[in-house]
Structure formats: C-alpha cells, structure tokens
Design a protein around this nucleic acid. Structure first.
Lengths: 198, 198
DNA sequence: TTTGTTCTAGAATACGTATTCTAGAACGTG
DNA sequence: CACGTTCTAGAATACGTATTCTAGAACAAA
C-alpha cells in the first residue's frame, strides 16, 4: 500500500551516472542529480540517506555489472590463450557498450566519488575484489601452473591494465573505443602472456 | 626591496601536490594546502588569485616536467625500435621517480583539479599537447613512413597508453612502479609496434 | 633611521551545497 | 470512501570552504 514510486533507486543512480560522466565527481551535486532526474531533492533523500551512500551504491552497481562479464569470460573452458584474449577484450567491449558507466569507473576512483564508504554497505566491495583476484589467480594457474606474485602481476597487466589503457583514451574524450583497438589489445595480450608461457 | 618571501610559488605548488596525492582533488582545500605548507591562507592568496589558478598552474608545471623527458627520449637519433622502447619506459621511470606528481597526472584529469581554466594562462596547455602530438607523429613517420590516424593511434597506444597503464596500478596504491614492469612494457611495446612495421 | 614595498597573519565574509523539515499528493487496503 | 502509508515537493537550515580585508612584520634602499 501507499503511493507508487515515481523514481526508483536505479533511476536515481542512472541520473547520477549521467551527471558524473558529463561533469565529473565534483559536478555531481544533489541538486544537479535532481535536475537530471527532473525530481526535487527531497525525492533523492527519500531513497538515499546521504550523497556518499548514493555514490557508493552507484560505484558498487557499476563494478558488479562490469565484473559479471569479465568473470564469465575468464571461466570459459576453452583454449587458454583464446580465453585470455576474450577476457581482455571484454574490457574494451563493455566500455564501448556502457560508455557512461565505463567512463566513471575508468576515470575515477571510488574515493573520488564517495569520500567515506558507508559502513552499512559492509565489505561488499572487498568481496568483489577478492572474487576478481581469485579468478585471475585461477587463470594463471591453469595457464602457467603457478600463481606467484610476478606471474599474477603479468596476467593482470595483460588482461586488465592493457585493455583498460586502450579504452581510457577514448573514454577521456567521451567516445566509444573504436574497433581498431581490438587488434592492438589482441597483439599486446598475446605478446605479454606468451612471453611467460615457457 | 620589500620583505623577503617566506614561501615561493613553487613551495605552494609542492604543498598542493602533496595534498592532492594524499587526499585527491576534493581534499585540496586552500586550508589544507596552507596547513601542509604551515602557512596562513592569506599567504596562499597573496601568490595565487584563486584556487583554480593555483591548481591549473600545478597541472601545467607537472605536464611540462614530464613532457621534457618524454620528448627528449623520442628525439634521440638511434635505432628506432630502441627509441620507442626508451620513450615508453620513460613514462614508467618518471613515475617511479616523481611519485606524487605522477599520481596526480595519472589519476586525475585537468578538469578534476581546476574546474575552469584561467584564461590568463592562455592556451599554453594546448601548445604542449600539440608539441607531443607532433613528436609522436614525427616518430611515426620516421619509423613507418606514414602518419595516418590509424598508425598514430598505434604509436600512442604503445608509447603512452601501455606504460601509463603499467604505472597506474602501482600509483593507485601509492607505490613506486616496480622494476619488473619494465620487462612487461618492453614486450608489449615491441609487439605492438613490430606488428605494424611491415 | 626612516620610508616604501612586499609579505605574513588570520579573522571576517560570501557563497554554494548537503541535509532537514513540513505539506500535501497519490495510492492500496479495509 | 476514509485511512495508513509511501512518495513527491521544495523551502528553510546548517555547514564547509573560497575569498576578502585589515593589521602588522620584515626587509631594501635612501
């Protein structure tokens, strides 16, 4: 019972996402978010106790959405070299298809959005990081038979950092990463991982 | 004549740099910078008309310092493949030796520091960018005999984006990029540029 | 020593933005 | 068709931070 909601939690997060993508974290004032959503500030506070909580939840949502595809790509049972390339390309592909979300995740750090992590969100974020680390580590073991720090660093560089860098340049100017990047990423990933295959 | 200065312009910029590296752009309040410098806010405003001007000048100073070495590395008359690798490694090496400065340049955008670019600084920044683009373009011509967009993109990816990504992960956690990154960067740069050498 | 000038000092002010508060609207339920 | 509940509305308030302002200190030159 009660009045039906005009704005959902996701609606608010989407509005915040749009604002941050356009004006950066400092531009994401509650008033700006409300304007973007065409809602009064009261409605925002009705759903989110504070600005920090709102932005923290936005961050969490983005990470989860991105991570799902990355982990799935990495878990495929297939030729290991191909799996690596696919996972790396997922970073670029996802950025291409989720421009604003990628822009926010790539250009900023969590601390730059929400100064303080609301403890009511618990350590959900830490858990997500652990999941990614485990997946990468697992891939390293499957492919190289070891998970020493050096090997893991190499895999992270190839599967995450390189495609990330490729996407970043486009995201900086607000454009979708061009298709031509895929070839560059593919080349780099192959080279970096094959060099350790011995 | 007149009282001798206790704080130079560079002193203030250094203090601002320290604060931003530690707390991010939002933490770089005039009061925080003054505290870091152990000076009253009045002294800051005596040297800088506004916060935006201060941060814009800091940005400019960082870019110039970084760029000098990069352009020098790229202009060397030597085996072209070696020149490319050296230039790419300069990014990592410079980050290692200028932790705070690299941190600020790598983790944030100019707009995230100074919301509005003070027009009294003119288009100095644009000129710097043009210089870099010209140097990269020149390298592309020397090495590949062409400067079409696709080729330039490849060179930028190899010489800037890849080493940038390598350094970023360390800078995120405030550490100096480890030596072991050099090998990864070297491998990636070679692979990406050799693939186009045909 | 005196004077002009450049700085340091930090209190006072102005302003922007997060947050709170009070009304009233909309809807499901009995 | 009241009632309780959940929302929308947006004005009012609180607070943090940029910026301004007024004094006085320190020093070079005369």
């Amino acid at each position: 019972m009660g009045r039906t909601a005009k704005f959902t939690e996701d609606d608010v997060l989407d509005a915040a996402l749009t604002v941050i993508a356009a004006r950066g974290p400092a531009g994401a004032t509650i008033a700006a978010i409300a304007t973007q959503l065409q809602a009064p500030v009261g409605s925002i506070y009705h759903r989110f106790r504070s600005r920090d909580l709102l932005l923290a939840k936005l961050w969490l949502r983005s990470i989860m959405r991105f991570q799902a595809g990355f982990l799935a790509a990495l878990a495929v049972e297939d030729d290991l070299a191909a799996v690596g390339v696919t996972a790396a390309l997922h970073v670029v592909r996802w950025s291409r298809e989720h421009l604003d979300e990628a822009r926010v995740m790539v250009l900023y750090r969590r601390e730059d959005l929400a100064a303080r992590w609301p403890e009511e969100l618990g350590d959900e974020l830490a858990r997500l990081n652990v999941a990614t680390e485990a997946a990468v580590s697992h891939y390293a073991r499957r492919r190289f038979g070891r998970t020493d720090a050096e090997t893991v660093r190499r895999v992270v560089f190839a599967l995450v950092d390189v495609p990330y860098a490729a996407a970043r340049r486009s995201l900086l100017v607000g454009e979708a990463p061009p298709k031509s990047l895929d070839g560059l990423v593919r080349t780099a990933v192959h080279a970096v991982l094959d060099a350790a295959a011995g």
